[in-house]
Simulated assay, not measured.
Amino acid sequence: MRLPTWIRQHLAALRALLVLTVLLGVAYPLAVFGVARLPGLKDKADGSLVKANGRLVGSSSIGQSFTDEDGNPLKRYFQTRPSNAGDGYDPAASGASNLGPEDVVDKLPDPRLVAAGKEDGDARRSLLTQVCARSRAVGELEGVDGSRPFCTPGGVGAVLAVFGPRAKDGTVPHPTRVVSLNEQEGVVKAPFVAAYKGVRVELARYGEDYARGLVVPVRGRAPARPAVPADAVTASGSGLDPHISPAYARLQAKRVAQARGITTAQVEALVKDSRTGRALGFMGEPVVNVLRLNLALDARYPARE
């Protein structure tokens, strides 16, 4: 007896479901698991975990902070690049800030909340200000010039709102008012530049709308090639990058050597040994794994307490 068409269609769908379940739900996962157990792959499949003296200290594939309880960098260790993954290097919150190069204007905090010792949840630092603040902090930590183009000496984005009649090309040739957008009145004493095209520059006031002004970033006199490398002030796309550039490692070598009571040359030798070349000889850039470098330092040159 021939079954009705609708029953045959349902039976065919059921057979396909069972076959695909066995192949993709059982066989394929088991095959992947078996391959991951092969010598040479097992370590990576387990998370590239790193142990020191029998104790788990981290993963060579995921960055981590080397700071004290208050979040201050430990001078005896190399520091990793910034992270926007959760509270920092959180694998469950991997991701970037999603802020682009045109994100240059801060959302200022409510001074009443700041005066009360509270945090304004609506305030937000622009990508430019984040980069400027990080560069200034790294410069102070490493004893170098932390200035960057389009950054104020105070570590915020050097951005003006210029008001006045606009020319056909969109510029404001004869300003009537100029405001430093990222420098808040009551927080800084004076703007990073006193005047712009002959007009006195004002500090920004909380709650005032400057949207009608032309946003003008000011390059300033910082060197075209800052002393602080780019990877020291920007986070990776995943927020989990465990590597830094050789340039950033060299910048930190003197500080680490002083903290451990050894020579800079000794530290730089370890940096050279910890350096990894381009993948397959041509992809990416040479990098230094921070966790492995710090472990090598502890093993060879223990920090003085």
Rank of each mutant, 00 (worst) to 15 (best):
G281E: 09
G207T: 05
A27E: 12
Y28S: 12
V288L: 04
A36H: 06
D298I: 10
N53K: 04
S147T: 08
A137Y: 05
G86F: 06
G198F: 13
H174I: 12
G139Q: 04
A116T: 06
L113Q: 06
N182T: 11
V32C: 07
K107N: 11
V57I: 15
N84Q: 03
K51C: 08
A211F: 09
R112D: 12
D169R: 03
L30T: 14
L113D: 04
V188I: 12
V199P: 03
G198V: 13
S135M: 03
A194E: 15
A36E: 13
R304F: 08
A93M: 13
A211W: 08
G117A: 05
T263D: 10
K189I: 09
D110Y: 04
G88E: 01
L20E: 07
R125M: 11
V105R: 02
G121T: 09
V201Q: 02
V288G: 01
R2I: 13
E285F: 10
N53M: 06
T67A: 13
Y196T: 09
E183G: 02
R255Q: 12
A45G: 14
S245N: 11
R205W: 13
R81N: 06
A123C: 05
E102Y: 10
R275L: 15
N72D: 14
A161E: 03
R300W: 12
V233P: 00
T264H: 04
A269E: 13
R2V: 15
E208R: 07
I262C: 06
A133P: 04
A96W: 04
S245H: 07
D43L: 14
L128K: 00
D46M: 13
A230Q: 10
A253E: 08
V105W: 01
L41R: 06
V26T: 12
Y89V: 01
Y89E: 01
K75R: 15
V57P: 05
V114W: 02
D103I: 07
A92S: 13
G155R: 00
R292F: 08
L141A: 14
Q79R: 00
V271S: 07
R37G: 11
R81F: 07
V50I: 15
R112Q: 12
A296M: 10
R112G: 13
D122Y: 09
D273H: 07
G220F: 04
D110K: 01
A190V: 14
V144C: 06
R125A: 08
I244R: 01
E208Y: 11
A235W: 03
A299T: 10
P149H: 01
A194D: 15
G284S: 09
S135P: 02
N84I: 02
T67R: 11
D70G: 14
A12S: 14
L49I: 08
L270S: 05
D70V: 06
A167E: 15
S48W: 12
L280P: 00
P191I: 13
G34W: 15
V159Q: 02
S65Q: 05
V218R: 00
Y248V: 05
L30Y: 14
E202Y: 11
R37F: 14
A27T: 14
R37V: 10
A27M: 14
F66C: 08
V215C: 07
N289Y: 10
A31E: 14
V105G: 00
L49T: 04
R8V: 11
R221G: 10
V32D: 08
G281Q: 06
Q184R: 06
K189C: 05
T80C: 13
L14P: 01
P191C: 15
L270M: 13
K107C: 05
G281R: 03
A93T: 04
S60T: 11
